[in-house]
Design a protein around this nucleic acid. Structure first.
Lengths: 205, 205
DNA sequence: GAGACGATGTATCGGCGCGATACATCGAAG
DNA sequence: CTTCGATGTATCGCGCCGATACATCGTCTC
């Protein structure tokens, strides 16, 4: 899963580890906590030895024209390779059942702008099915377990059930939009100055 | 985390692995997927060698009075020990920051009926603080990142923000109730036949 | 100009939990 | 009679996490 996220981010521009962590936190802040270094660096190493990413020369923001060999600062910038782009496309195409759990879905959704419409629909529907199953299971528990579970556990189930119902509705909205070929509607979001045009770039640019 | 859940379940009655998995799935279905055997059995072994649980003789449901030595069926029933109960109480008392993330909070909440009111309040408030932080972070992203993030990522943030706001409201309700000494209100839940009295047993019975 | 401090940055370690898999028994259905 | 699904225990490799260490940079303060 992390592999997918890193490839997706490096697909847009080269970055070093710290930057990846911050970008990922911003992009997935809604889904999961910031990624741990204990995951990040081993994954980077793995990706590099697999040939999906390579080190790019240090490019300090302001310093011009000075190609610092063995840069005074040990900051390692990575960029994606052709194999890496291929791998990323493969991971999108293979999107299967493991893509429908909380973590997997969130990460894939975050990169929907680089995913073709057919796969987007497949993932949305798979996710919906999974959430519906969980919802039904919780309805069962609530309906026939009133005497077995204590008040707090019941309250937890109620809250969870509510969240499931909301997510299903959200997914259904997205699916309808997707079927009609539209990107998510730019509904009101905090301040309104920013340009909110869909600008969906499909698959490979 | 799993350790806590297992001790909590065995606190109520002895069980074997399969049963633990099912009970846990019912109790935590809203929070996380069913627990994996690859986690369950190693944890049981760990708990046993730590002295927190012990094997209890096989007790097949219908067979009466026949203490089957080396039972024909390899089903291992565990029960909690005195040290285990102590350990469980310690884990509740120590409830710290790691209790405020998604998984930790859900599991602790599920055993609130065995948690004293002061700790309940502490956990609820810690959780609220954490969710509020996440909410603020997402509001920032949404407010000032309209041009940097694509439409799908924005939609993900919006949905996540909504979920955070709802959870904060839910937690606030619970905190108010908790402060006034009430258990969660038995609001409408599916069918209404079951007795929904609070019946909160505090700490050690 | 010396020292303190927080942000930036890379790296490793032990341990937990997951998914896949294997294997064995039991009851019921065909 | 056999086949199939539910029940049940167990292991293996690996991804990811939290804690921790360490080093440099810019800035603020005395």
């Amino acid at each position: 899963m992390l592999e997918f996220a890193i490839l997706g981010l490096l697909h847009e521009s080269p970055m070093h580890g710290y930057e990846l962590r911050k970008e990922l936190a911003a992009k997935l802040g809604s889904i999961r906590a910031a990624i741990s270094y204990g995951s990040l660096y081993p994954t980077l190493r793995r990706l590099q030895s697999a040939g999906y990413i390579t080190e790019a020369g240090e490019t300090p923001p302001t310093t011009p024209e000075v190609p610092v060999l063995t840069s005074k600062r040990g900051r390692v910038v990575y960029k994606i390779t052709a194999e890496g782009k291929e791998r990323f496309a493969d991971l999108i195409a293979q999107a299967g059942p493991e893509t429908y759990d909380d973590a997997g879905f969130g990460i894939h959704f975050a990169f929907f702008a680089r995913t073709d419409q057919a796969t987007r629909l497949r993932i949305l529907e798979g996710r919906r099915r999974k959430v519906e199953e969980r919802r039904e299971s919780m309805r069962d528990v609530l309906a026939r377990a009133g005497e077995r579970l204590d008040a707090y556990t019941l309250e937890l189930q109620r809250h969870g059930l509510d969240a499931c119902e909301r997510e299903v509705r959200w997914l259904e909205e997205l699916i309808v939009n997707e079927r009609s070929g539209r990107a998510p509607e730019p509904r009101s979001a905090g301040s309104g100055t920013a340009e909110t045009s869909p600008h969906v770039q499909d698959e490979r640019p």
